[in-house]
Each structure stands twice: as C-alpha cells, then as structure tokens.
C-alpha cells in the first residue's frame, strides 16, 4: 500500500505559485526525504500532506484517504513535527508528552506506553520533569521530535527534524529516527537541507526546486544519474541542469 500518493499538486499563495504540479509516491515503511533550497516548497508540501493547508489543485492521499475530504481519518494515522514547533512552556516535558499522548491513545495503558517511549526518544533523562521554559533550544527540538514519534504513527512527517541541533544531538536524532522505523515499521517523510543527513537516513529522496520535483530516486541512483560522488554534488547538478532547461 502507498503511504502517500501525490498527483499533480499545485498550491498558490495569492498569485504566487509555490507548488507547480508535483507528483510522487511514498511506499509504506520507507524513510523518504524531500530536499530543496530555501523557499522551494518543502514546508508547503508537508503542510498539505498534514491536512493543515489545502491543495489549490491536484490529489493528495495518505494511506488511501484524501487529505481534504477525509482529513479526520488522515489525522488519526499521522503525526507531524512542524518546522518551527514549540512546546507548552509552563508545562513540564512529561506533561507535554502526556497531552499529546492522550490525543492519540485510547486507554491509559496505551497513553502510559507512549509517554514512556517518548521519554526514551527525547533522551532528556530527569530533565523531562522540569518545565519546558527551562530547556535549551536543542532540548525542545528533541522533545518535540519525541512527541511526534512516541505515538507510533503510520506516517511521521518531520519538517527539518535536526534544525537547530548540534552535531552530536543531530546524530542522536538520526539514530532515533532509524531505530524508530526499524522497531515500528512506520513510514517517515522528512525534509532537510542537510545532504549528509539525508544520505544516511533516507531510502529514497526527491529533489524539489522552485515548486517542481526535479529528480527522484534512492541516494545511489541519484548520485549515479548526476555522476556525483555525494548527494550534495548530485543536488547541485540537478538544480543547475534544471536552470539550463528553463
């Protein structure tokens, strides 16, 4: 079954066309990376899949459910880490986790299980019992990621999961994501600027530039296609050849 199915997706902000008819699929159980420069339309795409923005044109389905007509169904299956997510500052880390767990979990055992898992992913140790207002930026991002993954969604949508994190924390987060997918069989869709991260994490990657998908494939396929030694090089060549065409 396809986790995500996007056909000819357009999105306008007023007169400005941020997405110019993109099409791609994500298989269940994949870690899929959406890569592109600033302003290329990554966040817009993720927000549409997450049901909070509407497509101007085109079809977007998550596990067969339409994101516009069946948004409620979609929201039961996904969880989302926004690009600029923050937490409730007057609440402690655990209270934040508990609040989100209760949105998904049906029974108190389920909720407890989620929170336990969340504390583990966050790696915050005893600090999870402190108020979030005492956390550093990186700690908050880790907690936000934990909050997103702990509910074991069928599809986790992560908008730049490692933004604002130091190298060490980034490595931790990447390992968490990988471990999470291995353990749960969930699908992950993430966006990033960090090619190293994407190469390490993703099964498949789509390059997006100015609202168009310009290439799609496994990291190895893309490197081969653009005759590049790493994904960064492949990306730069893809963008350049796109510029030449237009």
């Amino acid at each position: 079954m396809l986790a995500v199915e996007i056909k000819n997706l357009h999105r306008f902000y007023g007169d400005f066309e941020a997405l110019k008819g993109i099409t791609f699929d994500i298989d269940e159980g994949e870690i899929f990376g959406l890569i592109g420069p600033n302003g290329s339309g990554k966040t817009t795409t993720l927000r549409i899949i997450a049901t909070i923005l509407k497509p101007s044109k085109g079809i977007v389905k998550v596990f067969g459910y339409d994101v516009v007509r069946e948004a409620d169904k979609v929201r039961e299956l996904i969880s989302y880490l926004p690009e600029e997510a923050d937490l409730y500052k007057r609440l402690t880390g655990v209270e934040n986790l508990l609040f989100f767990a209760k949105m998904y979990g049906e029974t108190s055992d389920e909720v407890k299980e989620m929170v336990k898992f969340g504390i583990e992913i966050s790696g915050l140790g005893n600090r999870v019992y402190d108020k979030v207002e005492t956390y550093s930026k990186g700690m908050r991002r880790r907690l936000a990621l934990a909050r997103t993954l702990m509910v074991k969604p069928k599809l986790a949508i992560l908008d730049e999961p490692t933004s604002g994190l130091d190298v060490y924390a980034s490595v931790n987060v990447r390992n968490s994501i990988k471990k999470f997918v291995r353990e749960t069989g969930s699908t992950v869709l993430l966006s990033s600027h960090n090619m190293l991260e994407v190469e390490y994490l993703c099964d498949r990657v789509a390059f997006i530039s100015k609202g168009n998908i310009i290439a799609i494939g496994t990291p190895d396929e893309l490197k081969k296609k653009y005759n590049a030694s790493n994904l960064e090089e492949a990306f730069v060549r893809a963008v350049e050849s796109e510029l030449e065409e237009t």
Binding site: R47, S79, L81
Partner: peptide, 14 residues
C-alpha cells in the same frame, strides 16, 4: 504565536 498550534491542529482532535 508560540508555535504550538500547528502540531496541535494535526492531532486527531477536531
């Protein structure tokens, strides 16, 4: 403003 809404809107809560 405090950027907590976006995540909340994507939860199953109506």
């Amino acid at each position: 403003e405090r950027k907590t809404l976006e995540a909340l809107l994507v939860t199953p809560a109506s």
